[in-house]
Computed example of a mutant assay.
Amino acid sequence: MSISSTAARTADATVTALAGPGGHFLPSEQLSQILEATEADWARLAANWDDLRLDTHMADGGTYRYRRYGQFELTTATGELTLLPHEPYRQESEVNALNGGVDRLFEPLTESFLNNPLFARLLTALGEIFSAVDGTERWNIKLHPYRITAGAEVGQPAPEGRHRDGVTFITSLLISRLNVDGGESSVYTNDGDLLETVTLTEPGDLLLGDDRRTLHSVTPVHPVDATAPAHRDVLVIAYTAR
């Protein structure tokens, strides 16, 4: 995709950060420049989070997470993005001590989600950044739209604690926050040194990490007003080099 010189410098800085320390926060304003996205574009994408389904595979018994799932293959040299057949999602227990070791079947992404005009631009732009870091041109992309609710039950964006996802690069994109405190995201080196701590607050705020060299965590979310609905919506996107 062709982007402005300012957006190109932002993308280059992201490549440098990922090739160096391994973690990087990209504010919404900068990501929006890369994607040529408006507030209305983010709002249209966010509407899809009202159509997620309860995650019934939580080993902690939690009922605070709603989600869907889908995966793609991307060839960055040509920009070809291909939806892959729907199948269960699996992580091994060594990677996910809480929910790993089993096949988890989630509802697929909706046509509304897949046809959103911002969607392909986002996946392609991130793939180009990761290709510039890693040299890989073919990626498997796994998408996890999450809604974490907060109320009488504490919302846990990362119930497994500090972890990695067993992929090449991992990103967390804020879609919306409604009536919540908390949700502070942190990225660490493999030795436990803190690289980045940030609270994603604006639609389009993005935290990226080299999953081979970093660990990440997110603190729980609590309602500001316990009598009103409260949730944190994010899109977690995992890129694995082919």
Rank of each mutant, 00 (worst) to 15 (best):
A152V: 06
L109I: 04
E29C: 02
G70A: 00
T214D: 02
Y146C: 12
T10E: 13
G100S: 07
R164H: 15
S5D: 12
E184A: 13
M58C: 02
S217E: 09
A125D: 11
G101R: 06
G79E: 12
V154K: 13
D191W: 00
S186W: 01
F72G: 04
Y66E: 15
T219N: 06
A8Q: 08
G209M: 15
L74E: 05
R90K: 13
A120F: 01
D50K: 06
L109G: 10
L45S: 00
S28L: 01
G135I: 07
S4Q: 07
P108R: 05
G204N: 14
A19W: 00
N96H: 08
E36M: 08
E111L: 06
A120E: 10
V95L: 09
D50L: 05
A97R: 15
E202D: 13
A120Y: 03
A46I: 00
F25T: 00
R213T: 07
N140M: 12
R53C: 12
A46F: 01
T76N: 12
Y188A: 10
N116E: 03
A132N: 12
G192T: 11
V234S: 15
V236A: 07
L208H: 08
R162I: 12
P27Q: 07
D60P: 08
W42S: 12
F169P: 09
N116F: 01
A37Y: 13
D210K: 07
A238M: 14
T6Y: 10
I129N: 08
A7G: 11
H57R: 02
T16Y: 04
P223H: 03
E29T: 06
S2F: 00
E184H: 09
R177D: 00
Q33C: 06
T199D: 05
R212Y: 01
F130I: 01
L174R: 10
S28R: 04
S32N: 15
E73V: 15
F25V: 00
G61E: 10
S172A: 12
T201K: 13
A8F: 01
S5N: 13
S176D: 14
H216A: 10
Y64Q: 03
L208E: 05
T149G: 08
F25Q: 02
D193V: 13
A40I: 07
G62F: 02
V221E: 05
T168P: 14
L194Q: 11
E184N: 12
A125C: 11
K142H: 05
E128N: 13
S176G: 15
Q71L: 06
L114T: 04
R213H: 10
D193C: 03
A40P: 03
G61K: 04
P203H: 11
L200R: 11
L122G: 04
T56S: 02
Q91P: 13
N140R: 15
H163V: 12
R104W: 05
T189R: 05
V95S: 04
V221D: 08
T227Q: 15
F130G: 01
R177T: 00
T82C: 09
G183S: 03
S176Q: 11
